[in-house]
């Protein structure tokens, strides 16, 4: 039983982090055709917010909770700046945004190195998370449960926002057909900005969760951006259901493969699996029903 529960649970926790990294990507790619390679750096920003909060509020238990909304706002604002300065000029030119945001990512990494130094900074695990619960013989670290709950809560809020608010309806309208939305009076430029804020902010929250796994370091984002994109592409661009399933699937598959083979081999095999899936379903697991005529 242990052989199954351990990879299942750790994989689900990894999937939760991938989900928070991927939500912003799927929103911006689906809505604006923007491939944001700098999204990984918003994870890094979130992690540094967790570190800085811990420097100000010495109680690790309190500071991690406070860090979550701060990380959301700080990473979100950075996303707004990126949108306003670079990305707005390149809507619907995915490859251009890919190249430009890779550049932005490098700049942000170097900035972090200059400010905080290349050596990572420690983030202390709060006492109330430093415990284990026994699940079918596996001593499951509470931190992983916390990560999963954080992702589920973020997802629930985002889903409610998209489904039940007028702002959410505008986002969905823009994703489905931008021109038609505009003729109905939807201010698509404002909607774009808000989407960018939301997506980047969610990555910031993910960064707080990552800081509990590996502390902070300037290149933290690079190890998550590729898997996050795999998740987006696999799940189908621009909607939540597929992203959630894909994030969970990639996380659990990687964990099982790691268990059976090795860390490096698992990465290769996951990548190969995703490519194989995409040859069968090139649009990803799910697709947005667009209302465009072409």
């Amino acid at each position: 039983m242990d052989a199954l529960t351990t990879p299942f649970l750790t994989g689900t926790a990894t999937g939760a982090i991938l989900l928070m990294a991927a939500l912003g990507l799927t929103l911006t790619f689906g809505q604006m055709g923007v491939i944001n390679m700098a999204n990984g750096e918003f994870l890094m920003v979130g992690a540094y917010v967790a570190y800085l909060t811990q420097q100000v509020i010495s109680s690790a238990g309190v500071s991690i909770i406070i860090a979550i909304p701060i990380a959301f706002v700080v990473a979100g604002l950075l996303g707004l700046v990126l949108e306003a300065t670079v990305i707005r000029w390149m809507y619907d030119r995915p490859l251009d945004t890919l190249l430009a945001t890779v550049g932005v990512a490098l700049v942000l990494q170097q900035l972090a190195k200059d400010i905080f130094g290349a050596q990572g900074d420690p983030v202390v695990l709060p006492g109330w998370l430093d415990a284990r619960i026994n699940v079918f013989g596996y001593e499951w670290p509470l931190r992983q449960l916390f990560t999963i709950l954080l992702a589920v809560a973020s997802l629930a809020l985002l889903n409610a926002l998209l489904r039940y608010t007028s702002f959410g309806r505008r986002i969905r309208a823009t994703v489905q057909n931008r021109q038609l939305a505009e003729t109905q009076g939807v201010p698509t430029r404002n909607v774009d900005r808000m989407t960018f804020f939301l997506g980047s902010g969610l990555a910031g929250v993910g960064g707080v969760a990552i800081s509990l796994i590996s502390g902070t370091n300037p290149t933290l984002g690079t190890s998550y951006i590729i898997p996050a994109f795999l998740v987006v592409v696999l799940g189908g661009v621009g909607q939540l259901k597929g992203t959630v399933l894909a994030a969970w699937g990639v996380g659990v598959a990687t964990a099982f493969l790691t268990d059976w083979t090795s860390g490096s081999m698992a990465q290769v095999m996951t990548f190969a699996l995703v490519v194989a899936m995409l040859t069968l379903r090139p649009q990803g697991l799910f697709t947005v029903r667009t209302r465009s005529l072409a």
Binding site: T6, P7, T10, G11, A13, T14, Y138, P141, Q144, I210, I213, S214, L220, T222, S223, A255, T258, D259, G263, Q267
Partner: peptide, 10 residues
């Protein structure tokens, strides 16, 4: 390039 050791540590 990876910092996630949870599966291996288990």
């Amino acid at each position: 390039s990876s910092d996630d050791w949870t599966t291996q540590v288990a």
